[in-house]
Computed example of a mutant assay.
Amino acid sequence: MTERLPGYRPPARWLHWITAAAVLLMIPAGLIMTREGIPRPLQDALFLFHKNTGVVLVPVILARIAYRLTHRPPPLPVSVPGWQRRAAGLSHALLYVLLVVMPVSGFVRVRSGGFPIELLDRLGAGPWLAKSERLADIAQGIHAAGAFVLIAVLALHIAAAAQHALIRRDGVWSRMWPVGGS
Score class of each variant (00 low, 15 high):
A93M: 11
L98A: 01
F107S: 03
L150S: 04
F115A: 08
S105W: 15
I158S: 14
A125D: 08
A162M: 12
A147V: 07
S132D: 15
L150V: 00
A152Q: 02
A125C: 14
A139H: 03
A125V: 15
W128H: 11
R122M: 10
L154E: 05
L166V: 01
L90G: 14
S132Y: 14
E118A: 15
G146N: 11
L166C: 09
L95Q: 15
L95E: 13
G124Y: 11
V100F: 15
A144V: 07
L119Y: 10
L98W: 06
V110A: 12
L120S: 15
A160R: 09
E133N: 10
A165R: 14
G106I: 15
L135M: 11
L150N: 02
F148T: 01
W128P: 01
L135R: 01
P127E: 10
S132A: 05
L150R: 00
V153D: 11
G114S: 00
A159R: 11
K131V: 05
G124F: 13
V104M: 06
Q163A: 08
G106C: 08
D137Q: 09
L95Y: 10
L98K: 03
A125Q: 13
P127N: 05
A144H: 12
P116V: 02
M102E: 07
V108C: 02
G89S: 03
L99G: 03
H92G: 04
P116N: 07
S91Y: 02
L95G: 11
A144K: 05
A147P: 09
I117T: 13
S112E: 15
P116C: 08
S132W: 11
P127W: 09
L135C: 05
L154S: 04
F148N: 15
H143M: 00
L154I: 04
Q140K: 04
G146S: 05
M102Q: 12
H143T: 00
